[in-house]
Simulated scan of single mutants.
Amino acid sequence: MLKIGITGGIGVGKTVVCRMFAILGVPVYDADTRAKWVMRYDEALKQELTDAFGPETYTQEGELNRTYLAKTAFHDPQKLALLNSLVHPHVGNDFEHWVEAQSSAPYVIKEAALMYESESWRQMDEIIVVSAPLEVRIKRVLQRDPHRTQHDIEAIIGKQLKEEDKKARAQHIIYNDDQQLVIPQVLKLHELFISKK
């Protein structure tokens, strides 16, 4: 089965593009949502995270203590790298099990913001990068997440792989720049992927 990765920085519109593929009947794996699930229910990962970041990583009820983990890891590059190195392999395994359950689909999509950074692009046959100009991305995120400031968004963008680097490594680019229609771009790729089945 063909495995297609969709990636791109914050505010490019990955989720919108993935919804379009889902409407066409393509199974979509949302890596961010599944990572949260895996961190909550994968007992081996819970133990690894507790060993790495301390008993406060989970509440007494077994819920992930996101506030504590964010405060502990997100502002320390080494701890963030450690967190990612623990979580990403478990998400990769979860994705492989999910793919096995999609046997009737012509192809599947994995949406992940950190596809290159996490090395999960290696599990994919082809990569689509969703692209949008920086000012459009900032405007979208400010509208979507009113609690974030422009400074917050620029800091997130600064930590992500540069868009030009992502585009250079991808087989396909969808331009979601408010100038070009996205649906025809999605339909064209859909037909291409089906033809490769």
Rank of each mutant, 00 (worst) to 15 (best):
I153L: 07
E154G: 03
E154F: 08
A155N: 15
I156L: 11
I156N: 04
I156P: 07
G158Q: 14
G158W: 09
G158D: 05
K159A: 08
K159F: 03
K159T: 13
K159L: 15
L161P: 02
L161N: 04
L161E: 15
L161F: 10
L161G: 08
K162F: 13
K162D: 14
K162H: 14
E163W: 01
E163M: 15
E164L: 05
E164H: 06
E164Q: 09
D165T: 12
D165Y: 11
K166V: 07
A168V: 07
A168L: 09
R169W: 00
R169D: 00
A170E: 00
A170M: 03
Q171S: 11
Q171R: 15
H172T: 00
I173L: 07
I174G: 05
Y175R: 10
D177C: 05
D177F: 06
D178Q: 15
D178I: 09
Q179N: 08
Q179K: 15
Q179F: 08
Q180I: 10
L181C: 07
L181M: 09
V182W: 09
V182I: 15
V182R: 05
I183L: 14
I183Y: 13
I183M: 09
P184C: 09
P184G: 12
P184I: 08
Q185H: 07
Q185I: 10
V186Y: 02
K188G: 02
K188Y: 09
K188C: 05
